[in-house]
Structures are given as C-alpha cells and as structure tokens.
C-alpha cells in the first residue's frame, strides 16, 4: 500500500523493552526462540514468488521434485507465439499510458494532501482510497456497463479503468513524500522570487521526486497486474497479459505463465535490490558525514 520510507530502515530502534536485567552475562548471538515462526512466515511470503522459476524451466507441464530436466521451451513460447507477444505489448501500452495519466492526475492531489492541512482533506483521501478497497467485481461490472455506453472498451477503456485503480497509489506515495516538505519552504521560495510554477519545478518536484517515482512504479504494476476489471473491458482484439494468463490458467496448467512470472520477478527484484542498495549506501554516507 505505501512504500516504506527509507528513514524507517535507517533508524535502528532501541530495544523497546529495555535492557536485560543486570547481573546476567550478555547473551551471545544465537537464534532467538522467535526465529522459527519468522522463518515460516518468510517461506510463506516468498515461496509462491520463487517456485515459478524452477517451474518455468522444467520440460513437462507438471513440476516435479527433483526436476526432471531443463528446458527453455516455455520462454520460447512466450517470446514467439503471437498471442503472448501481442498480449505483452498491449499490457505495456496500457501500463505506460496508465502510469503517465495516474501521475499527472494523482501527484498534484498528493502534494496538496501532504503539504498543507485543509478542511476536507480526510474526506478526499477516503474517496481516493475507495477504488482500492471496493470489490473488484463490483467495479468491473459497473465500468463494463457504463463504459460500453460511451464505447470506452478495449485499449482506451482499459487505460481509463486502470488509471482509476492506480491513482490511489500515486496519491498515497506522493502524499507521504510530501509530508517531508515544510510549507515554509514554499513561502521562502516565493519570497525569493519564484513564481508558483517555478516553486513547483525547483522545490516541489525535486523534494517529492522519490515519492512520484515510486508512485509511478506502483501505478505501472497495478495496471500490469490487473485481472478482474480487464476481463470485462478487453475486446477480443485487445487482450492484456493478465487476461491471456487467466484464460490459459482456466483451461489447463500452462508453464508459459511461469515464464512470464519469472521474467517479471527478475525485473522487479533487481529494481528493488538496486533501490535498496542505493538507499543503503546513501544512508551510510549520510551517517558518516552527518
């Protein structure tokens, strides 16, 4: 829902329950009794994401342990068969357009919500969040019937629908970034001769830049991954990747889906690792200097 602020990582909280009672030797590092449940939760969290990798390279349709061979057939299908390649291109189109629109619409609202306090702020935020919490099927049938009346189906219908579903993430991430902006910085910039537009470009965008970037990433993923609404709004000539995957999964077990997932996993985890490492280095540097 909200990207964790880097500062959350940097601030090492002290022992919340206080130091151990005196008179006892300091414990050597050993596994705490809580380590086992945490390990189980970690497995629960990551197993479904990781299992797709061996699945995508196993030759048969059924994954076995130990794996009975190695094959890149499913990747070949993914990158050569037109139904998969066109689905990927369609998804890319829709996701990029959604990202641009969601940022253009959501970032100003996020800044307005985060920087100053004004009446009705909570109400607006509540409204903004409803697309996230509303049952997808209800949203889907509603959009299906209303968008059809204005012939907003297929590519543009999907972009419109995905923008609605993605914009809350942009608003929330930009808003939490904007909370770090002191409103007097804006007054200061104005008094130093910057017009409102230049304040936005020279102060707001640089300071909220990280929030806008991660909001854009969330928007992209939301669109890229959206199934339920897309099922209603695609037309036969314009399927997105999740729609294609859903159709395949309902018919039979198709490891091409695992190949898609592995590719995505590779891209997103490397982006995440890069972000973490960069943040880590910067924190370290800041600590040395500060």
């Amino acid at each position: 829902m909200s990207a964790p602020a880097r500062s959350d990582l940097a601030a090492a909280p002290a022992d919340p329950v206080g130091p151990p009672p005196p008179g006892r030797p300091a414990r050597r590092r050993r596994l705490r009794p809580g380590a086992l449940p945490v390990a189980v939760i970690v497995i629960l969290l990551v197993l479904p994401s990781l299992i797709v990798v061996p699945m995508s390279v196993s030759p048969g349709e059924i994954l076995r342990f130990p794996p009975d061979g190695f094959s890149l057939d499913w990747y070949r299908t993914l990158f050569t068969e037109p139904q998969w390649t066109s689905a990927m291109l369609n998804s890319l189109q829709v996701a990029l357009a959604t990202t641009v629109l969601a940022v253009l619409i959501g970032a100003p609202a996020g800044l307005a919500l985060g920087i100053r306090e004004w009446r009705g702020r909570g109400l607006l935020l509540g409204l903004v969040l409803t697309p996230v919490v509303a049952p997808p099927v209800v949203v889907a049938i509603g959009m299906y019937t209303t968008y059809a009346q204005v012939e907003l189906i297929g590519r543009w219908g999907l972009i419109a629908a995905h923008t609605v579903l993605a914009v809350p993430f942009v608003v929330v991430t930009v808003m939490s970034a904007a909370r770090q902006i002191d409103p007097t910085w804006l007054d200061a910039a104005r008094s130093l001769g910057a017009s409102p537009l230049r304040v936005a470009l020279t102060v707001l965008v640089p300071l909220a830049g990280k929030g806008i970037a991660s909001g854009a990433l969330f928007a992209f993923i939301t669109s890229w991954d959206e199934v339920v609404v897309s099922l209603y709004l695609t037309d036969p000539g314009f399927k997105t990747l999740p729609v294609q995957m859903w159709n395949q999964l309902r018919e039979r077990v198709d490891p091409t889906v695992a190949a898609v997932a592995s590719v995505m996993l590779l891209i997103t985890t490397s982006a995440m690792v890069a972000a973490l490492v960069i943040g880590w280095r910067r924190d370290g540097a800041a600590r040395e200097n500060g």
């Binding site: 007097t184 910085w185 007054d187 200061a188 104005r190 008094s191 130093l192 001769g193 017009s195 300071l207």
Partner: peptide, 20 residues
Amino acid sequence: LPPERRDVGVVFQNYSLFPH
C-alpha cells in the same frame, strides 16, 4: 502583488533552507 514580485527578503524561524 504576489510574494515573488515584492522584492522582500524573508528569514524564517525554522531557517527554511531547501534540503535538496
């Protein structure tokens, strides 16, 4: 007249230096 056209220097209590 908007603040940027008043040619007035302002020093704020919390300094309001741009952190970036």
